[in-house]
Amino acid sequence: MAQPRNYTQEYIQLKEQIIKHYYKPALQYYAEQVPARPGDRKASYLWPLCALFEAYQVGALVETGAKDVEQTFGIIRKYYDPRAPAAGYASYPPELGGGDRFYDDNQWIGITAMRQYETSRDPKWLKAATGIYRFMMTGLDTVSGGGLYWQEGDTRTKNTCSNGPGILLALQLYKATGNRGYLKTATSLYQWVNHWLRTPLGLYYDHLNVKEQRVDKRVYSYNTGTMLEANVLFYEITRNATYLTAAQKMAADADTYFLKNQELKDNFWFNAVLLRGFLRLWRVDGDARYLEAFRAAIDHAIAHKTPQGLIGKDGRSQNLVPQGGMLELLAQMAVLQKQGVLK
């Protein structure tokens, strides 16, 4: 019988390869691709750092004393852009030319900051998250009945990937502060997403083209992941069983759609967000079957490493986002293994 994988060891090994291949000590930024492609900029965009920030936040639970969260947030701070109407994080560092600001990039940082606050109670994390909430709310209007845009200044689309994490951030802030304004925001966004972007199966479409009132029907695992976790959070706050029932049905449908054939259906980081939803549900109902399904799919992925020790198909340029996503997946598996949930 094969020995079970040591997920802590897998996490540490991948982390070492990410730092070796992507981190640029002289510049003190990460690179976007390995190997670099023609036209790549000097530093990565913000999104890969969102992936690493969350991965390291989870990884700190298995690698005692690691300083990766603080170091990564220090790099993220270099993307800070204080311009009106509210300060937020730009897609590219202002000192290197700056970039557009995306509501979802900011929300992922806010969500992770709140996870840090929940464990440390350090007020700096709450301050960071409330600042991101203020920026996020500048993307809200009443067009199409509400909802958040995806990109600042671009009023073409409202996306599940900007509204789902917006719900999570608002609920986290409500749980931390008791301010019912946050709960009101979360409820409004939740109703908007379900009105426009819920699929007949109970998963979630990508976005609404506001001007054409046309829905982009692509289905990604991270969109379902945020809405799954949102339902469980709503249940934890309200004890309304309707939310839990919806979460359990969504989990079953997501398992069938995204984890069939024991393979991860899309970007590893998208799957990391989906796993967060499954984990939140498991902590409430104790049903670990979806965690085992994820484990099988992760094992399949990490059995195929590149010669550089990264995860993905050999011969392709490897983007940092899915590497950060796999790092989080391994960290989550390591935590579950440490807790005895997975052997």
Rank of each mutant, 00 (worst) to 15 (best):
A2F: 00
A2Q: 13
A2K: 15
N6P: 03
Y7R: 03
Q9R: 12
Q9F: 09
Y11R: 06
I18T: 05
Y23K: 12
K24Y: 13
P25G: 06
A26T: 14
A26N: 15
Y30M: 13
R37Q: 14
R37L: 15
P38I: 02
G39Y: 08
R41F: 10
A43K: 04
Y56I: 07
V58P: 05
G59P: 01
G59M: 04
L61Q: 13
T64F: 10
A66F: 09
E70I: 13
F73S: 03
I76H: 01
D81F: 03
P82N: 12
Y89A: 02
D100G: 12
G110C: 02
S120C: 09
P123D: 09
G131Y: 00
R134W: 07
R134V: 03
T142K: 14
G147D: 05
L148D: 05
W150L: 12
Q151K: 12
D154N: 15
T157E: 14
K158E: 04
K158V: 04
C161M: 07
G166Y: 06
L168R: 09
A170P: 09
L183I: 05
T185W: 08
W192G: 05
W192K: 02
L197V: 07
R198S: 11
Y205T: 06
Y205G: 01
E212N: 09
R214T: 10
R218D: 09
R218A: 10
Y220Q: 13
S221W: 08
E229D: 07
E229Q: 14
V232E: 08
L233G: 11
L233D: 14
R239W: 04
R239A: 12
L244D: 02
K249T: 14
A251R: 09
A254M: 08
Q262N: 13
F268R: 12
A272C: 02
R276V: 02
G277I: 02
L281W: 13
R283L: 04
V284I: 12
V284N: 09
R289K: 15
R289P: 01
R295W: 00
K305N: 06
G309H: 04
I311L: 07
G312W: 00
Q318F: 08
L320Q: 06
Q323T: 05
G324Y: 00
Q339S: 09
